[in-house]
C-alpha cells in the first residue's frame, strides 16, 4: 500500500513540475537582458517598458478586456436564465433541445464554432444587411454563445444542489416570488455566478480561433496580435506580457479561493 502511495505521489509531483516548468521559464526569461529567450544574460526589466510602449499590444489588450467583460456579462444573464429553465421548470417545449445546446459548446472544437458563426454572419448580411461589418460586435456575439453555455452548466449544478425548502421558507414567511429570488436564491447561488462570469471572461479573453474567424478590420484582439507575433518568432516582450497575465490570474484566483472559503455551503 505504502509503495503504491509513493508511486502516486511521485507521478503527481512530476505532473505538477510538468505543469509549471513552462510557466516558470516564461517568467524567468521575461527578465532576461538579451533578446534570446533561452540563454540567460542578466536581469533586466526593459521588456516590460517595451511592452508598455507597444501601442498595438496595449490597444489589443484594451479591446480584449472590453469584449471579455461585455460578453461575460451577457453570458451570465443568458446562462443563468437557461440554468433556471433547465433546473426549475419540470417540462416545457424544447427542454431537451435547450439542454443539448447548452452542453454542446463545452466541447465543440473552436474551428467549427468559428466557421459556422462566420457563415451565419455572412448569410445574415446578404439577407438583412446586418452585421454590416465583422468586428467587435460579431466577436462578442460569438463569445456569448459559448460563454453562456459554461455559465449555464455551473449555475445549473448549483441550483440542483439547492435546498428548495429555503425558497419555500421565505415564501412561507411572506416574501413574494421576486423577493424570494433576490433575498434567498441570488445570494446563495452568487459564488456560482461569480465563477461563471470569471470563466466566461477568461474564455473570451483567451480565444484566438473563433475570434479569428469572425473578426474584421480594426478589431484585433490580444490573442490575434500575440499569435501573429509568435509566428514571426519569439520575443521577450511576449514573455513580459505572459508574466503580467499569469500574476494577475494568480492574484484573482487566490482571492476568489479565499472568498469561497468564507461562504459556507
Amino acid at each position: 500500500m505504502n509503495r503504491n502511495r509513493r508511486i502516486v505521489q511521485f507521478i503527481s509531483i512530476l505532473g505538477f513540475i510538468f505543469l509549471y516548468v513552462p510557466i516558470i521559464s516564461l517568467i524567468i526569461f521575461s527578465f532576461n537582458n538579451s533578446k534570446l529567450v533561452s540563454v540567460w544574460s542578466g536581469f533586466s526589466t526593459k521588456w516590460y517598458f517595451a511592452l508598455l510602449q507597444n501601442e498595438q499590444i496595449i490597444e489589443a489588450a484594451k479591446l480584449s478586456v472590453f469584449i471579455a467583460a461585455f460578453s461575460a456579462t451577457i453570458s451570465l444573464i443568458l446562462g443563468t436564465l437557461a440554468a433556471i429553465a433547465l433546473s426549475r421548470y419540470r417540462s416545457f417545449r424544447g427542454k431537451s433541445l435547450l439542454s443539448g445546446m447548452v452542453s454542446a459548446p463545452l466541447i465543440m472544437p473552436d474551428v467549427i464554432t468559428g466557421l459556422s458563426l462566420l457563415l451565419l454572419f455572412v448569410t445574415l448580411r446578404s439577407l438583412i444587411g446586418w452585421p454590416a461589418q465583422m468586428g467587435a460586435v460579431t466577436i462578442i456575439i460569438a463569445h456569448i454563445s459559448f460563454g453562456m453555455a459554461f455559465v449555464a452548466i455551473i449555475v445549473q449544478s448549483r441550483l440542483l444542489h439547492f435546498d428548495k425548502s429555503l425558497e419555500e421558507a421565505a415564501k412561507d414567511l411572506g416574501a413574494k416570488p421576486l423577493r424570494v429570488f433576490f433575498d434567498i436564491t441570488l445570494p446563495i447561488i452568487s459564488p456560482a455566478l461569480i465563477s461563471g462570469w470569471l470563466l466566461a471572461f477568461t474564455l473570451s479573453f483567451d480565444d484566438l480561433v473563433i475570434a479569428s474567424f469572425v473578426t474584421g478590420p480594426g478589431a484585433s484582439t490580444l490573442p490575434i496580435v500575440i499569435f501573429s507575433k509568435i509566428r514571426l518568432g519569439i520575443t521577450p516582450e511576449i514573455n513580459a506580457l505572459a508574466t503580467i497575465i499569469i500574476v494577475l490570474v494568480a492574484i484573482f484566483a487566490t482571492l476568489a479561493m479565499l472568498q469561497m472559503k468564507k461562504i459556507p455551503e
Binding site: 510557466i23 484566438l208 505572459a242
Partner: peptide, 12 residues
C-alpha cells in the same frame, strides 16, 4: 491563464 501563451512557452 492564457492557452496561447502556455503553448508559446513550449517553443522556448
Amino acid at each position: 491563464s492564457s492557452f496561447l501563451l502556455r503553448v508559446y512557452a513550449w517553443i522556448g
